[in-house]
Structure formats: structure tokens, C-alpha cells
Design a protein around this nucleic acid. Structure first.
Length: 235
DNA sequence: TTTTGATCATGA
DNA sequence: TCATGATCAAAA
């Protein structure tokens, strides 16, 4: 738990951009983090057994344990947390806080994203406030159950980060609108976000402007961008 | 090794 | 049956 959290709460309360809802959220978050502390430093298997999550070799095992732990630590009900709380994600990281994978958001429809404005976009709503729970694994192939929970990181994009994300989101939106959905920049071409398949399989398609289709896709946070967020929080 | 398209377990 | 949160694994 960040020792300066109480100070951060005070400092942020002075910022005019913060309204009552933000303050209420921070109070809930402070309680959540304190109650989550007992899980930090323990393995996924250990915590999972403790809170009744059955072991699995499936892709979502570590995430199911982390999400259950977050819900258990939260002072507000699961429903309320999901609707008003931060977007919560688990991310397996190495010893440099570099995630082994990028972080995904729900799939979008190409023909809907081109009608969105950044300020009321689905992505902005998801990214405005996030709780990222790092789970340390010595190597990518370290079994999920052996990975260790770290202190959750509450993140709100800084003005600079938000500006970069808006620039890239707008670039993607405009490219799709210009019938260039088949040649979008890759993660290695961007700083913060990229677009990537997010479907059942390659036959799971979504119509694109211009008459074609692409595998259903979503926005993802770049690995290096998430690493910067986690590193900034550990300073 | 890194990048990027493909896939999968789970829950509603 | 499908959307979601994540990892897998073929390419580069």
C-alpha cells in the first residue's frame, strides 16, 4: 500500500476536476487497498484456496482469483463496484514490471466506433480510472498458480497520457472511417494503445467501412505503456 | 526473442 | 450462444 495514499487523497481533493463521486470512490478505494493487503505477497494458489476459487489450468485462473480477492476486499457490493468502480484488470509481469501480455478491452464494432467522439467514447469511459493488479511470475511460463500477487495500482491517466491516448484513438478511428481497417498501425507503432483481434476465432468477423470485414477486434493497452504506469506507481 | 493474429475457459 | 479477460503460438 502506497504510504502517501492519504496525502494523494488530500492533494487530489484540491483539484477542481475532482467531484464528489471521485472522492467517494477514493475513500472506497483506500479501504479496498487496506483490505487487499493481506493477499499481497502470496501466490495465486494460496490465495485462491483461501477464498474458494477452484484451481484451473485455464487462461483465466489467475484473473479469477484476483477478481474474487478484489471483490472480497471491496467495501462496496460487487454490482456497485462493477458499475461505478475502476476498470479492474490483472496483469502478469516480470521483475521489471513489464507485462507478459498487452491488456485488452471489450471488442468494438468498426461501424460504431467511427461515429464516436473521444469525449464520449467507450474507451475513455473504461480508461478514465483503472485498478491494475500486477501478479509477478519469474518467467512467462511460470504456472499461474505459482505467481505472486502484488499491490494493486490505481491509475488515472495524467493529462499527457490522456492526450496521447486521445491522439492514437482518433488516428485509429479516422483510419477505420477511411476504409483502412485492413492496415492499421501495430503495437510496435504506437505508444499507448493498439487494435488487435479479440474474437472466438478467425471466422468471428465484424463488418468494416468500405464493404469488407475484419476479425472482431478491440483496443489494447500496450505492454510498455502498462509498464510505465506500474513503474510510476512504485516510485 | 519479439510481435501480432488466433484462440480459449468462464459466466451470464 | 456470446462477450469478456486473458494467454497461446505462429510469424517475423
Amino acid at each position: 500500500l502506497k504510504p502517501s495514499f492519504t496525502y494523494a487523497l488530500y492533494r487530489d481533493s484540491l483539484d477542481s476536476r475532482w467531484n464528489n463521486r471521485n472522492l467517494a470512490e477514493l475513500a472506497n478505494l483506500d479501504r479496498l487497498l487496506r483490505r487487499f493487503a493481506p493477499f499481497v505477497g502470496r501466490s495465486i494458489n494460496d490465495v485462491g484456496a483461501d477464498i474458494g476459487v477452484r484451481p484451473s489450468t485455464g487462461k483465466g485462473y489467475a484473473a479469477s482469483v484476483v477478481h474474487a480477492a478484489v471483490q472480497m476486499a471491496s467495501p462496496i457490493p460487487k454490482r456497485e463496484l462493477a458499475s461505478t468502480g475502476p476498470t479492474t484488470r490483472m496483469s502478469r509481469v516480470d521483475d521489471e514490471l513489464l507485462p507478459y501480455e498487452a491488456l485488452s478491452f471489450p471488442a468494438f464494432r468498426h461501424n460504431e466506433i467511427i461515429t464516436e467522439d473521444w469525449q464520449d467514447s467507450a474507451l475513455l469511459a473504461l480508461i478514465e480510472h483503472m485498478l491494475i493488479v500486477p501478479v509477478y511470475g519469474r518467467t512467462r511460463q511460470t504456472p499461474q498458480g505459482a505467481c505472486v500477487l502484488q499491490t494493486p495500482v490505481y491509475w488515472r491517466p495524467t493529462a499527457d497520457e490522456l492526450g496521447e491516448i486521445e491522439r492514437e484513438w482518433t488516428m485509429f478511428r479516422d483510419a477505420i472511417a477511411s476504409s483502412k481497417a485492413d492496415r492499421l498501425p501495430a503495437e510496435s507503432d504506437t505508444v499507448a494503445i493498439h487494435i488487435r483481434p479479440h474474437a472466438r476465432d478467425s471466422t468471428d468477423r465484424d463488418a468494416t467501412p468500405g464493404g469488407g470485414s475484419q476479425t472482431k477486434r478491440s483496443f489494447w493497452l500496450n505492454k510498455r505503456f502498462v509498464q510505465r504506469i506500474l513503474r510510476a506507481a512504485s516510485r
